[in-house]
Design a protein around this nucleic acid. Sequence first.
DNA 1: GAGCACTGC
Length: 921
Amino acid sequence: MRQIVFYSMTDFLFSFMVVIIREDKRNVRRKVSEGEDDGTESEEERLRDQREREELEQHLRERDTARTRKLTEPKMSKKEQEEVARRDSAVEKGDTQPIRNFSRQEYLKKRELRKLEELKDYLEDESYLFGDEKLTEAEIQDFRYKKAIYELIKKRTQEEDNVGEYRMPDAYDQDGSVDQEKRFAVSVQRYRDTGSTEKMNPFAEQEAWEDHQIGNATLKFGAKNKQVSDNYEFVFEDQIDFIKASVLAGDNYEDAMPAKPSQESTGKSAFDMLREERKNLPIYSYREQLLNAVKDHQVLIIVGETGSGKTTQIPQYLHEAGYTKHGKVGCTQPQRVAAMSVSARVAQEMGVKLGHEVGYSIRFEDCTSEKTILKYMTDGMLLRELLGEPDLGSYSVIIVDEAHERTLHTDILFGLVKDIARARPDMKLLISSATMDAEKFSDFFDQAPIFSFPGRRYPVDICFTTAPEADYMDAAIATVLTIHVKEPLGDVLVFLPGQEEIEAVEENLKNKIRGLGTKIRELIICPIYANLPSELQAKIFEPTPEGARKVVLATNIAETSLTIDGIKYVVDPGFSKMKSYNPRTGMESLLVTPISKASATQRAGRAGRTSAGKCYRLYTAYNYYHDLEDNTIPEIQRTNLASVVLSLKSLGIHNLLNFDFMDPPPSEALIKSLELLFALGALNQLGELTKAGRRMAEFPLDPMLSKMIVVSDKYKCSDEIISIAAMLSIGPSIFYRPKDKQVHAYNAMMNFHVGNVGDHIALLKIYNSWKETNYSTQWCYENYIQVRSMKRARDIRDQLEGLLERVEIEVSSNSNELDSIRKSIVAGFFPHTAKLQKNGSYRTVKHPQTVHIHPASGLSQVLPRWVVYHQLVLTSKEYMRQVTELKPEWLIEIAPHYYQLKDVEDAASKKMPKTSGPAVV
DNA sequence: GAGCACTGC
């Protein structure tokens, strides 16, 4: 939103900046050469200079036109253009006086008012959103987007009328030069003083920045022959101004951090040292208070920053206080790795073997025994345990750790665990979270007391840009280079939304570095995202060589999932990709969205893990306070709930709409899921779990996949079906497509689609081929397939195979009968069917909407008349992913309760050509 | 001929 609004202004000033930058470059060059031969340039240098300038100008021209093209704002009138041209020529002549008088603000205001009028009627009427004529999700997005812009403009014009023309108080000296310190002080003051932030002029920063830039122009051109300041050597084209707006306080950081335990320096045993270290943790001094609080209250909210030791220490304290005498202490983590590493650490501290008194339990791996009293596990694992032990009778304490992350499973646990605590007064419940949202947790858990203690962290300076950035990627690159040149050594972490952006930035940075040559220190660029093969991922953990700097370009993976030591600078453009789910259409989409304040804080905190750090936010403080949400929308409100509903039903929760959610999901999503489960035969008309439903709930899969497995018993192909289910549930990360070998990768993939068997069967072929090569890694490389994904598929398949026995399904193979495999698929996915239209698109059968076969599908060129699909995604179009052909009569045969003859008969009556491919009209 | 943030059972 802010990008577009401010775009025009940034762009407007761009012509000025070009001049400034050009001049800067010249000055630098001049400075360097002057030092050597007293201002006289050699011919060679002059030519080089000229060439460079031409290159620069060419580059700027290109970028200029690119930006102009993007611009959606109304163009300036001819008169206005003439005025600007006149001012421009004044600048060229070095006569800067007129610029300061130019009524830029009036022009902008006029233009915005015009825009306001255009949008007014459309945007003040909400019925577009809720009227009879339903809009698509994309249209609604667009509407909201425009509306937000409109609100901003409206607010601004109103405020400007009240405030009058903006002037920077006291920031400029008489002669027009800028006192930087004063100026920053004023800027900072703006955020401190405004008790009611509403009163702030939202564009103050923008204008301050503009004034500043113009001030620069004045300074530079007025001082052409004067001495240029000497405190820099390189000037980057897009250097960005930051203001330090706040400090993410480090808690107790000045307290002696325990020196890294080094075996040789002390004569103590490792065990003693661990014990010493435990006493140094911030939580240690609160031990007695904490235990008293646990004794007095059944439910307790614990707030402590990361690094306070709460995850490792609290269970031990509880054990020492005797809570493990009559049951286990269970501690949930959102991630597998966390559960494993934390339990290993605790076992070490307690001097026991992992898996005995201290253990962990995650999917595919249960490292516990009968002796286990402290059990770490993933939240989803506890949810699975609840299916077998609904009152958690074997636990005396449950700790829900990292509750602020609000994962889907954590959110469900909240409701369940709250209910159990009411029924079991002897059970203690601790909810542990980082600072955010403590009150909300307390409210939810019947006003449970909050126990908070400090963590240990170094302070992080937070810097905002003084002006919004039009292109966050350019800005990120510029910031990284500025840090590299100006700041002391220390690694940099850049957050980017996705793989594509990371690759682009990597490329661009490398080019820039090459251009700068050997004058700067070495810069090592490490990309990291989940789909990156693990051997390349490991690169980020390699220590940085002496004298060099490492730049880590990361997705959200670096926000919570992995921590990198040695990061001192964080660059945060303020965006991430977020999945959203539309229950009405059943469509998923992945959108680049602004992050929340909570994740901004989390990102900033990544800079202060091993020493004091700095965080550069590529947005303004105004954006931060006004445009960012406080918290990220919890996962439960933006996901498909079918499997959640099935689990809850099998836990005996009948009235789901009244289930005690901390943030209830949209009821539409719940109802959709209930409908689906009813159609699949997992629920009866009363909403009770059927026998089939109970069997389906055993599988840790989406209900449609579970149904497919349960039905495969009938078609005697369960062996094939569980392979397909495993492959489907690892998602789209099976294929590895390096940019330079796209064609090879594509051909390799198409090998599995020979005979147009459909994507499901192709997945089966991939799995079986891999199995035949004895799970060969080499085979994966040859076929551009990700080994990691395949290994996961094998794990899942093994687990499913084990579960088959539990629900009394025989493993039976019938690999020659592809149709029976297809029928099993249809039996699970019959609500996901679509029929070919004359124009080559598809229409879903039950809730008609236009969709297309995803280009990555093997059938995207074949276009069968009827297809069953695994998933709908909204990207550039509405796409069906993983498609298989079916015969329409199967629908009547398999799902007579769902499809009537009329749903499928028109295909038979209309004489469509038998050959595949769209009919020509 | 598009595009895949991240977890988890």
